[in-house]
Structures are given as C-alpha cells and as structure tokens.
Amino acid sequence: MNRSEITEKLNTIFPTVFNKPGLSITESLTASDVDGWDSLTHMILISEVEKSFGITFKLKELNKMKNVGDMIEIIASKL
C-alpha cells in the first residue's frame, strides 16, 4: 500500500471518529487543527486505525506521531 492509498483509507476513518463528515486530511494536519481531537478521541482514533489496517502500534511510535504525515509513515513501515 502506498502513501496515497493509506491517506485514502485514513480519510474514511477520521470523519467517523471525530464526527465531522466533511473532514479531509493532509499530511501536516495536527491535533490542534481539529476540534474534538483531544487525548480522549486520540486513543479511539488509534484503535480504529489499528483495526482497519490490521496492525498494532507501539507506545513509542505513538509518541512520535506529531502530525498525520508521521502517522502515515509509521503505518507504511508496518505494512
């Protein structure tokens, strides 16, 4: 799966988790850009991402995700 495919898949997950139908993601998107993306919803997002890609993150990797781009990179490294 390449980066754009990952992005596409993420684009289906984000709007449902944050309850924002129009939300579309970019690599530079961070938590502070999205209303309702806080430490609580973050963990729900993570487990949704893990479920749909069939991967598990490590805590260390979680700490390294500073924006969506980082997330895509880490997902790509696991597929």
Partner: peptide
C-alpha cells in the same frame, strides 16, 4: 494516561 489508555485501547 496515554500509556494506560494505550494498553486499554
């Protein structure tokens, strides 16, 4: 919180 919620996710 993060490590805990991560392991309970």
């Amino acid at each position: 919180y993060t490590p805990l919620s991560f392991s309970f996710r």
